[in-house]
Each structure stands twice: as C-alpha cells, then as structure tokens.
C-alpha cells in the first residue's frame, strides 16, 4: 500500500532556518542541513524547504543549501519560493532538488506549469496554492495570503492539473497558524476534483488533526512546521498513532 506522507516544512532565509526551532541533539538548529538530517532520521517521509529570502543574494545561498541537503539527506525534498522560470528550476534540480514548488509565478503566467512539466516531467512540479474561504467561496491568494486573486481554488487546481502539475500543496489561510486542524472539507473536495496527490497544509496542532486530514480530508500527505520544530508532536509517535487508526504509514 502507498503510505500517507508526513512532511516537515522548513522556512529558509539567507540559507538559514528561520522560525525558532527547538530541537534536542542539534548543534546548530539554524543549519538546514543538520535539521534535515535529523528529520530524515526521525521518520519524516519528505521535506519542503521554502525560501523566504527577499534579496537576490539570499536566493543565491539557496543553491548551496540545496546542494548540501542533496549530499547529506537520503529522503526526497521539494524546494519552493521565488521560482519563476525554467532556468530557476533547472538550477535547483541540477543541485539535487527532487521537486520544486511554484505559487504566484504560476498564477501570473499559468503557461509556466506546462513548460516545466514538459521539460522536467510532471513528477517534479508541485503547485502550491494558498486559499482563503470568503463568503463560502475558496479564493486563491498570493503573497502569503495577503493579496486576493479572482481565482477559485477548485477551478485553479483543476487548471494546473491539466497543465501538468504533478502534485498540489494546498494551504488554507483560514487554518494556517490556528493549530485547530486542517481544512478537511476543502481538501476532500480537492481530492474528488483532481487525480493528482494533494498535500494538506495549515492548521496542524494535534495528532488527531493528522488523523482527520487523512480520513476526512483524503489528503495524500500532511505538511506542518511548528508542531514538529518545537517537538510538540514527534513524527514517530504520530506515525504510530496513525497506524493505530488504520492509516498506512512508513514505520
């Protein structure tokens, strides 16, 4: 059986991990490579690195980081943030990234999804979608949820699937940061609408939230940051409990 994936997400600025990370046995919690190695050892199935650097210099350090992660970490990882061209993707894949994720650049120029999937294959093209539920409609937002678009979540997700996306990373802005659970209704509807894997993001607070997003939300993977970084939920414990709920995981 294909298992459900647990994915810690690391925010990276100028080549360093941001958001306080409170981890035992780490010499340098700001070092993404150290942290990634630790997560791989602790049972993470995959990793996402999100580059939130604002400057060109900051972005360049991302390539060195990707190269080092690829050298030392033996599980797959996705790199996102500020990717807007074929050459950006080429460089990151060349450094050893397994997948890349694009967000606002796809909204601005949807053809980019076609171009990337044709050149590199759908399997490495993740489209990240941030959406907010407003008056019962899920509206796609840009820039971390601050700028609304006119796009409907489900229409947009369907469109990027047809354009060749291999996976959707859906973050509910209503749930993100609340620790009150994932947006399972929207996730389940996405799963019914699409035929590519969907990663649930935004709202993880307890083990039960993961159970719910796999059972009710039909998510293929669940992504979280702070609950893992602060050791509030240990991945192995989480996976054991998921298995007790008859959810297939890699243990």
């Amino acid at each position: 059986m294909l298992t459900k994936r647990i994915i810690p997400c690391l925010d990276i600025k100028n080549g360093r991990t941001v958001k306080g990370v409170n981890f035992v046995d780490l010499r340098d919690a700001g070092d993404p490579v150290e942290l990634a190695k630790q997560y791989a050892k602790l049972g993470a199935d995959e990793l996402v690195f999100l580059d939130i650097s604002a400057t060109l210099e900051g972005r360049k350090t991302m390539h060195d980081m990707v190269l080092k992660v690829a050298e030392h970490v033996n599980i797959p990882f996705t790199v996102g943030g500020g990717i807007s061209s074929i050459s950006d993707v080429d460089a990151l894949l060349h450094c050893g990234a397994d997948k890349i994720s694009i967000n606002s650049s796809a909204v601005k120029r949807p053809e980019l999804v076609n171009e990337l999937s044709e050149k590199f294959g759908s399997q490495c093209v993740v489209v990240a979608i941030d959406a907010k539920q407003i008056n019962n409609e899920w509206i796609v937002h840009l820039a971390g949820g601050t700028i609304p678009t006119t796009l409907n979540l489900f229409d947009w997700a369907k469109e990027v699937e047809q354009r060749g996306a291999g996976e959707i990373l859906f973050t509910s802005m209503n749930n993100d940061g609340t620790k009150a659970g994932f947006a399972n209704e929207a996730l389940a509807k996405l799963s019914r609408t699409l035929n590519i894997p969907i990663i649930a993001s935004g709202g993880a607070g307890t083990v039960q939230h993961f159970v719910d997003t796999f059972k009710e939300g039909n998510a293929d993977a669940a992504l979280a940051a702070s609950v893992f970084h602060f050791g509030e939920i240990e991945i192995m414990e989480l996976k054991k409990e998921l298995r007790e709920h008859h959810i297939e995981v890699r243990l």
């Binding site: 294909l2 994936r5 035929n195 293929d220």
Partner: peptide, 13 residues
C-alpha cells in the same frame, strides 16, 4: 488508470 491518483508518489512496500 485514473482509478488511482497518478503519479503514484511516496513510499510503498
């Protein structure tokens, strides 16, 4: 076939 999600992505035995 499209009775499952395609691609298969993740860990399997």
């Amino acid at each position: 076939s499209n009775t499952v999600k395609v691609p298969q992505m993740g860990w399997n035995t």
